[in-house]
């Protein structure tokens, strides 16, 4: 749930990049961070242990405009993707305003994608959210790999709700900002609805 700072007239929103291990969540964030104007972004913080890597940074994209005179500040998080770090994922998901599910297009990782998506639904439900009610987009990452499943197959398996979805190759930045814009748009639309 977005946090409103009245003194600085800012609305803080939390977007979480979810997905299975090594699907490219961190690569997405690194690309966004690298390509964002330094004046508009905060520090990039990596909360990493030896095996568990979580990334967090916040930034303030002025271009996304204001809502009733309040600037919107987006905090982007990734979760650890490995299946056994569920406790960390639950924690990071608290108070989420928008979710990006980053799927690994390699056919060998399809089962991990499904597990991660089911896990996302369970963890959201525990906090009283439904995936179809939260601003949510899917990114099919690693489209450049030779063992990528077809887009139709990915959609059929991972996106029965027909959420906005994007093909990406996060290592070169393809599809990264399209994904971010779509989820940010969803979050802002929700905020405007709540403001009415």
């Amino acid at each position: 749930m977005s946090f409103i700072n009245y003194s600085s007239r800012e609305i803080n929103c939390k977007i979480v990049f979810y997905g299975p291990g090594l699907c490219g969540k961190t690569t997405n964030l690194q690309h966004i961070y690298a390509k964002t104007n330094p004046d508009l972004k905060g520090k990039m913080i990596s909360l990493a242990t030896e095996t568990e890597r979580t990334l967090f940074f916040d930034f303030l994209p002025l271009a996304l405009g204001q809502i009733r005179g309040f600037k919107t500040r987006f905090h982007l998080y990734t979760v650890p993707g490995q299946v056994f770090y569920d406790a960390s994922r639950k924690l990071i998901l608290k108070g989420v305003d928008g979710v990006v599910f980053v799927a690994d297009s390699q056919i060998e990782r399809m089962e991990a994608n499904i597990e991660s998506l089911e896990n996302l639904q369970i963890n959201l439900k525990e906090q009283g959210y439904e995936l179809d009610k939260v601003p949510y987009v899917i990114q099919y990452n690693k489209r450049d790999l030779p063992n990528a499943a077809s887009l139709d197959e990915m959609r059929r398996v991972l996106n029965p709700m027909r959420a906005p979805d994007f093909e990406a190759c996060a290592t070169v930045g393809k599809g990264v900002f399209e994904t971010l814009k779509a989820v940010a748009k969803g979050v802002l639309t929700d905020l405007k609805k709540m403001g009415r």
Binding site: P20, G21, L22, T51, G81, Q82, V83, F84, E108, E115
Partner: peptide, 12 residues
Amino acid sequence: LARIIVSDIILY
């Protein structure tokens, strides 16, 4: 679940 856990361990 075993397949997913092992797949993760090998990936990392």
